[in-house]
Structure formats: C-alpha cells, structure tokens
C-alpha cells in the first residue's frame, strides 16, 4: 500500500518549550490511523504541522507525496482537515458553506454541485440544509464540518477528536462514516480521540504520544503485547504513566 501521510522527524518548539520531539510515522492508503495521547502530549500540534497550520521547527510532513513545507498547495489539496478548534460560519447555510469550500479547493462548478448534493444526502443534512449554521445543534454542526473536510474528495483526512461533545447516535454515525470512507473509498484517515473504545473499533494502527515523544507506534495488538495488558486503555495508561 502507498504511503499517504508521512511525518519525518517532526519537531515543534514554542520558545524554549519542545511540544513535539522528532516524531516519525507513516500512514498508508485505506488505513485508519489513531493518534493517541493525554492532554498536552502534542497531538494537536502534530496534526497542525501535518495540515500546514504550523511550520515545524524541524523535520518535514508529507501528504500524498507532497511536502507540506515545499509543496503546500498540492499537499493541502489532497487533505481534508478538521479539529475541535474549528467551527462553521454562522450566517451561511450548510449548502453555501460546502459550496464555498469547494470553490476554495477549485472543484469544477459542475462537479461541485453534484458533490455537495451527495454529501448533503450522505450526512443526513437535507432537513437542515437551508438553515444558518449558527442555528444547528452540535451534532448537526459536526456532520456539516466533516462534510466540509470531504467536499474536494481528498485522499487524506485528518480528524482531531471528531466525536467530542456528541451524543451516542451522532458519534456512531460519524464513526461508521470514517470506517466506510477508509474501507470503501480507500481514503487515508488519521483519527485523534480520547475515546479508546473508538480507537479499538476503527484503527488499524496507532501512535501514542507522550510529552511530545512517540511512546508507541504499531498495531493495537502490538501495544497490548508490549505492555502485557488485555485492553488498550490499560496499555495506554501504562505507557503514559
């Protein structure tokens, strides 16, 4: 399988504080990759470097074979990125919002309309598609947010805590969609969450970060084996404590 995401010795310093320390991993096409770590471990900083929001102090990030530092336009075109730090434009409705981002990604006009219609249907947005985003519930907003990351049909999707704050129904919908995205459409997904049960259900491989360093990188069964624990939660606690 082709490597779609590659972190090569990614390092980020904020003044004298090193938030991420020479992180290296890769994610292959069709894979759902879990990025785990306690609060402040450096997950969001890593994801921000992968998306080009932050410039690494050292190392390099590659998306679909394009360097995020030197071929940013191409790398970003291949990436759909969503973090908990992102919200929707208040006074646009979901269709307008999806169309706007489609235009930013230079999706051809004819394709864009069809793509927006497809996402509206796939994410169950139809009933609130004409409502301003500020009027949507948390679950509805999250559906629109994920649809927004997919409007340009990216090869790589990075989702930072996509189920945070959602009820069980909305979470399940999103998890199923992530699974379908990877399995049926061959998309590469990095999935960051604090819900380890979701990781066990979805992820093929994981990376556990602690204090900016990579503590574990491999399959879930490998981490269990390494820590001699029966479930991922116990293995995780052992590694980060």
């Amino acid at each position: 399988m082709e490597v779609q995401i590659e972190a090569r010795s990614l390092t980020k310093n904020f003044g004298t504080f090193r938030a991420v320390d020479a992180l290296s991993f890769d994610v292959k096409s069709g894979e759902v990759f879990g990025l785990l770590g306690p609060n402040g471990a450096g997950k969001t900083t890593t994801l921000r470097m992968l998306s080009g929001l932050l410039t690494p102090s050292g190392g390099e990030a590659f998306i679909a074979g394009h360097s995020m530092q030197n071929q940013q336009q191409q790398a970003r075109s291949a990436l759909g990125f969503l973090t908990g730090d992102m919200d929707l434009y208040r006074r646009l409705n979901p269709v307008e919002l999806l169309t706007y981002f489609g235009q930013l990604y230079e999706v051809p006009k004819a394709t864009l309309t069809a793509r927006v219609d497809k996402l509206v249907e796939a994410f169950g947005i139809t009933e609130f598609k004409d409502r301003f985003c500020e009027k949507l519930s948390t679950g509805q907003k999250q559906r629109v947010s994920i649809a927004r990351t997919l409007v340009h049909d990216p090869e790589v999707v990075i989702l930072d805590e996509p189920t945070t704050g959602l009820d069980i129904m909305a979470s399940e919908f999103i998890l199923q969609f992530i699974k379908k995205m990877a399995q049926e459409e061959g998309k590469t997904v990095i999935f960051s969450t604090h819900h380890l049960d979701e990781v066990e259900r979805l992820c093929d491989r994981i990376a556990i970060i602690h204090q900016g360093k990579l503590e574990h990188y491999g399959t879930i069964s490998e981490v269990k084996q390494r820590t001699q624990k029966e479930n991922l939660a116990d293995a995780f606690f052992q590694l980060v404590n």
């Binding site: 080009g52 191409q74 970003r76 730090d85 919200d87 930013l104 927004r148």
Partner: peptide, 14 residues
C-alpha cells in the same frame, strides 16, 4: 473567537 479562521488556512489558498 468563533473558531472559523483556521479552516480557510487549511485549504490550498495563498
């Protein structure tokens, strides 16, 4: 403040 500015910076926009 509304957490919408970052979104545009992840798009391939100069």
């Amino acid at each position: 403040e509304r957490k919408t500015l970052q979104t545009i910076f992840t798009a391939p926009v100069k």
